[in-house]
């Protein structure tokens, strides 16, 4: 199972980063979301993997590590707030700059503009 988990983290990191390297805001936001999954899974996995062992007293015989779970729980919620912040930033940039390029300049349009 560990191999699969590592592969999942690798795939999420790789796809997330690839999208984050794109030049338009929306793919970057999607990439950020994927990377958030990767980070959360990574942090969670640091507590190791156990089946049927929720960290609720008397619910099972063994308990998985509750600490990474508590950390990841808040991380998920804050991750949402941060994603929302980036999204709104992207909207603001779109409104103020007139395009959705991360650098604030529409390369295709700008080149055309310059040649005109």
């Amino acid at each position: 199972m560990e191999i699969l988990i590592a592969i999942v983290i690798a795939v999420l990191t790789g796809t997330g980063l690839y999208l984050m390297l794109r030049s338009r805001t929306f793919p970057v936001v999607m990439g950020l979301t994927l990377l958030t999954y990767a980070v959360n899974l990574f942090l969670f996995a640091m507590g190791r993997i156990q089946y049927n062992a929720p960290p609720v007293i008397n619910m099972s015989d063994t308990y998985s590590d509750p600490l990474p779970q508590a950390l990841v729980l808040t991380a998920i919620v804050i991750g949402f707030a941060m994603t929302a912040f980036v999204v709104v930033l992207a909207l603001r940039a779109r409104a103020d700059l007139g395009n959705d390029h991360v650098d604030g300049k529409d390369s295709v349009e700008d080149v055309k503009e310059a040649n005109r």
Partner: peptide, 8 residues
């Protein structure tokens, strides 16, 4: 991705 997966 590969590096992070390997570390994990």
């Amino acid at each position: 991705g590969i590096a992070v997966g390997a570390v994990a």
